[in-house]
């Protein structure tokens, strides 16, 4: 049975925030002057994790296991640190199944750029709560509403001193491209949390919900001020800041590996 024709277009719903993120990704890669042959887009499983298959300009792709994009990306970066390694992931993949790896990727400060499509809901498995769902969020599984507090990945990344921590919104294309470019240029680990509506399974955090709340990070914010960065990370509700929360001067993990001083561990042929 030839189902190939059904496979060529994105598997996302019409109106999904992923389209805007994909568009921004393509622009950020192009405007950063990245050669697709030196770029590896790594992902796990979920709707966001399908992004590597849809990028406009060809690149290397490692679409691995659910939750395991970060360790795979770490292995790739260590094998050849001259490659740009980007992880495309969702809130379930990165903060749920892969939460432990996030803690340790930040701790290492490995030079991997994590773009997390955060729609506060599980899409591919059809509408269960995610680690970033707000309390009270009702689903077919959380029938009385979510009880647990949402995870605060940005605060975690700030506390553990990632090189770069930022938030953006799929509804603000220009801002998103800028944040992606800054993340791509950062040394060490970069976490970019991208707020994104899920038009099918999240009727609470809609496009309008986000649009009404996102505000640019105040112009005077010093991204090297940890307390100020943490205040931004905890600002959630009527106002949600988007922009660069935090930067650190920590050297990347790979820059501290003796074995990588002279050349990458692995070189391609040709």
């Amino acid at each position: 049975m030839n189902l190939c024709q059904a496979d060529t277009r994105p598997a996302w719903c019409p109106g999904c925030g992923n389209y805007a993120i994909l568009k921004a990704f393509d622009r950020a890669v192009a405007e950063s002057g990245l050669d697709g042959r030196k770029l590896v887009v790594v992902s796990g499983i979920g709707q966001a994790a399908k992004l590597p298959h849809y990028v406009a300009r060809p690149a290397n792709v490692f679409n691995g296991l659910h939750g395991r994009a970060l360790p795979a990306a770490t292995g790739i970066k260590l094998a050849n640190h001259e490659l740009t390694v980007v992880v495309a992931s969702g809130d379930g993949d990165m903060y749920g199944e892969g939460g432990n790896h996030l803690l340790h990727a930040v701790r290492r400060n490995i030079g991997v750029k994590a773009f997390v499509h955060d729609n506060q809901v599980y899409g591919l498995t059809e509408g269960q709560a995610s680690p970033t769902s707000d309390p009270g969020f009702v689903t077919k599984v959380q029938t009385h509403g979510v009880v647990s507090l949402p995870m605060n990945p940005l605060a975690i990344a700030i506390v553990e001193e990632a090189s770069f921590v930022a938030r953006s919104f799929s509804g603000d294309g220009e801002h998103l491209v800028e944040m992606m470019k800054l993340a791509l240029a950062a040394d060490g680990f970069a976490l970019l949390d991208i707020l994104q509506p899920c038009v099918t399974f999240n009727r609470t955090n809609t496009f309008k919900w986000y649009k009404d709340r996102v505000r640019l990070v105040p112009a005077g914010h010093d991204p090297r001020d940890r307390d100020a960065a943490l205040r931004l990370a905890f600002a959630w509700g009527e106002r949600i800041p988007i922009g660069v929360y935090w930067r650190s001067e920590r050297p990347s993990f790979e820059s501290l590996c003796d074995a990588l001083k002279d050349r990458p561990l692995a070189a391609p042929l040709g």
Partner: peptide, 29 residues
């Protein structure tokens, strides 16, 4: 490691270890 130029990484768990290995061999190491 120093003599043979090896990166030895103590992973956060075995799941990370095998996925790091998969990433590294994908990239040729």
């Amino acid at each position: 490691a120093d003599r043979y130029g090896i990166v030895v990484e103590q992973a956060e768990d075995e799941i990370a270890a095998i996925n790091m290995v998969c990433g590294a061999v994908y990239a040729g190491a």
